[in-house]
């Protein structure tokens, strides 16, 4: 009787346990299928991400190669990008070699450790490139300010905005040097440069030289003579004489012989000795002795002509337009 009871209990236990075990096995199989599916999805996503990282590095490299920064900076940045690409390649191999969900999970853990350092490098390289380009843009904006001022426009707001951008640039450069630069510093610099750029766009709408005018922009180390009916800006270090003196519409002097900005308008005869930047619109002649460089258009609707000189050079502008 006891044996019969025992057998009955055993049979009942087997009957109850078998479907549960079967269901458990089926569940594990389903779980494995699910893991395989998400493994493929995650691997694909990780590969896309790593490819994006690589393409980003390549684009940055291309931009650095095409930029007109100095060779020393260019080589330094390019070497760092090469190193960065190598590390991205290493991350790509880890993802590619993962055969299943567990291996991919382990690979991603290793990549996370690599990425902490690599993303710092990427940021620093991008920021360095950004700062170099911003410096160049600020230089261009300063040239534009000179050009607008030489045409008699009020550039005070524009110059203030450029000064703010220059200050922000110096701050970022210092932080870049000691490795403490943050995205917020970069964003602040960008905003300051954008503000200055917006000012330049406003002035560009006011800057409408006459088609009958010519324009000359020159740097001279030596002496110069400018005469004619012009609107001009002279900056530099040296002595300048303007006749008639009433033609001066702005004169800003620095220490000793530094001329921060001298703007003249009308029929003038200006002579100077020293190192100068001269920008003039109108009809006139600029004679330079010494050495320097020049860019000019005889008429506004023509193309610029550039050149350098090491002895002397005379430019007639605006005549016959």
């Amino acid at each position: 009787m006891n044996l019969a009871k025992f057998m009955l209990i055993l049979l009942l236990t087997i009957a109850l346990a078998y479907p549960a075990a079967a269901a458990d096995g089926e569940g594990k199989g389903k779980a494995n299928d699910f893991r395989d599916k998400i493994f493929e999805t995650h691997k694909e996503r990780a590969m896309k991400w790593v490819e994006s990282c690589y393409r980003w590095a390549e684009r940055l490299e291309e931009k650095v190669r095409a930029s007109n920064i100095g060779d020393e900076a260019k080589n330094r940045i390019q070497a760092r990008i090469e190193n960065m690409k190598g590390e991205i390649g290493e991350m790509r191999s880890k993802i590619e070699n993962a055969k299943n969900y567990s291996e991919l999970r382990d690979a991603m853990r290793e990549i996370r450790t690599l990425w902490i350092e690599l993303s710092k490098q990427m940021r620093l390289i991008a920021y360095e490139h950004f700062v170099i380009q911003m410096e160049k843009i600020i230089e261009k904006l300063e040239e534009l300010a000179d050009r607008f001022e030489s045409h008699g426009l009020d550039v005070s707001s524009f110059r203030d905005a450029i000064d703010e951008a220059s200050d922000a640039l110096e701050g970022v450069k210092a932080k870049l040097g000691d490795g403490t630069v943050k995205y917020s510093d970069i964003a602040n610099l960008r905003q300051k440069v954008m503000n200055a750029f917006e000012e330049s766009k406003k002035l560009a709408r006011e800057y409408r030289p006459k088609l009958s005018d010519g324009i000359v922009m020159a740097n001279v180390s030596g002496s110069f003579k400018l005469n004619g009916t012009v609107m001009a800006l002279i900056k530099g270090n040296g002595t300048v004489n303007v006749e008639p003196t009433g033609a001066k519409i702005k004169e800003s002097k620095g220490k000793e012989n530094v001329i921060e900005a001298l703007v003249v308008r009308g029929k003038v005869n200006v002579t100077g000795e020293g190192d100068f930047k001269i920008i003039a619109h109108g009809n006139g002649t600029l004679t330079m002795n010494g050495n320097g460089s020049y860019t000019y258009k005889q008429c506004m609707n023509q193309k610029f002509v550039n050149g350098t000189f090491s002895d002397g050079f005379t430019i007639n502008f605006g005549f016959g337009c």
């Binding site: 684009r59 990427m122 991008a126 490139h129 380009q133 843009i137 960008r190």
Partner: peptide
């Protein structure tokens, strides 16, 4: 130039 620099930085942020 400003637009390109902006794009490069925003892409880096996306990667991060």
């Amino acid at each position: 130039e400003l637009e390109e620099l902006e794009k490069l930085l925003s892409e880096l942020q996306e990667l991060e």
